[in-house]
Amino acid sequence: MTDNWVRRLNPKTKLLMIPVFGIATIVSPGMLLGLFLLLVVIVMAWQANIIKKFLQTMISFGIPIAVMLFIIQGLYSPQNHTYVANLGFAKLGLEGLMYGGKLLVTLLVFMGSFYLFNKTIYSGELAAALIKSSLSDKGGYLILASLNVVPQMKRQLQVIKEAQEARGVQTGGSLLTRIKVFIPLMGPVILSSLIDTQERGMALELRGFDLKNVSKTSYIQVVDTKLDKLFRIGMLLFLIIVTAFSIYLKVRR
């Protein structure tokens, strides 16, 4: 991992960015603020040297969603009054387009900030940051363990798929056959994960996960600078102001 200021930011700061940016985009009228926040995320991705992958992901996700949203909202939104084009079979409405745009920007802001968070921290660091903070470590554990268990579950699903094929279950083919085999596939997955969960719970217990009255420590060092704290307070203030201003605009109208 290359070193730069985005990576050095405390994981909590980057984690907080996701809901703050996302919610601010939702509550603010129109999509201008959302576009601005998206720009901020893009600049940060550029600073973190992940801009290429970042844009690839956003575009490969954004274009199909955009097409879908614009068609559905643009052509069929009940709010459509102003029409910008007549396609013959349906008319393209401005209100729907705007609403579709807003949805798209919101999705992109959420996704972009999550992508940035995910790619510029590594999980050990987040665990350490959460342990240090007053955040419930159970919640922290759930987030992390689910992130880490996913690849292992994927691998297991593959093995189970092979095992079922070896018993004569066709797992490829049409959608219907796929749905039909889903049940035999899920049985062993749930069964094994039940057994594993019980044992993993035991292991955590043995390793002191549940200890009370201990201030936990961590192998990974995370720095929480004054700048981080400032950023976080700033973000929360920003969210409050945006929310208050949006409500004010709504009420006045």
Binding site: Y122, G124, A145, Q152, E199, R200, M202, A203
Partner: peptide
């Protein structure tokens, strides 16, 4: 596999 914490990325952690 069931003894790991699933919250760490290295053996040391």
């Amino acid at each position: 596999f069931n003894q790991l914490s699933y919250t760490t990325s290295t053996v040391a952690e």
